[in-house]
Amino acid sequence: MSMDPDTPEPSGGLKIPKLPDLEIPKLPNLPKITVTRKQALTAVGTAVFVVVVAVIGGAILLNYTQNQQVAAFSSHVAASEADIFQVYDKIAVHMRIPTNDLSVAECDAHMREFAAIARYGRDVTAYHRQIVAADTIPEAYTGAQSAYVRALDNLNRAFTFWSSAAGAYEMRDYAAANRNLADADEAWRAYAAAITDYDRELRAAEEEGTEEGGEEVPPPPA
């Protein structure tokens, strides 16, 4: 059986309908763009305006952001200092207790209090260290941030040694307690040195900010 090429009939018997010829419409003629000099100048002016607005806005936003970063860092340091001074209040009260005439039970209670203060100090410094170290700050302040974090690390180490000293006392190993206290004293001195570094770095950062004509950083909220 022959097959008509225009109406093919496959073996299944289904017929494929013949598609009509497609007619491609003619493209309309695009209007010719004619740009006047005034329009061109307007477009260029707009583009320049957008760029200028973007640059100025970006600069203002960047400055604002940096101020916000410094303010956040400042508030974190302030919170840290407030909590550390609460620890210090406990220490100061503890150190004022006369120990000349304590009984053995009172000595032990005194040391348990010392251990509790050490734990408190260790927790407070670890908590604030995490917060201050996570701050994103302008590059000029990274030295100050690093020094303050180092100060908290040393303070944390000092309180950890205090805890160890209290533990050694509990184990009646007074020699180990003395060794831990000596290590703690060293950590306290390292803390004091780090605070001095922090002050110096902070002053340098602020002087740098003043020289660059940056806006004055607002004091942190009380």
């Binding site: 860092f73 400042s74 340091v77 200092e81 001074f85 210090y88 303050y148 206290l181 002050d199 602020e206």
Partner: peptide
């Protein structure tokens, strides 16, 4: 302990 005094840290931004 021989050392236990806290050194106040100046705050950034005055």
């Amino acid at each position: 302990p021989g050392e236990y005094r806290i050194r106040p840290a100046r705050l950034p931004g005055g």
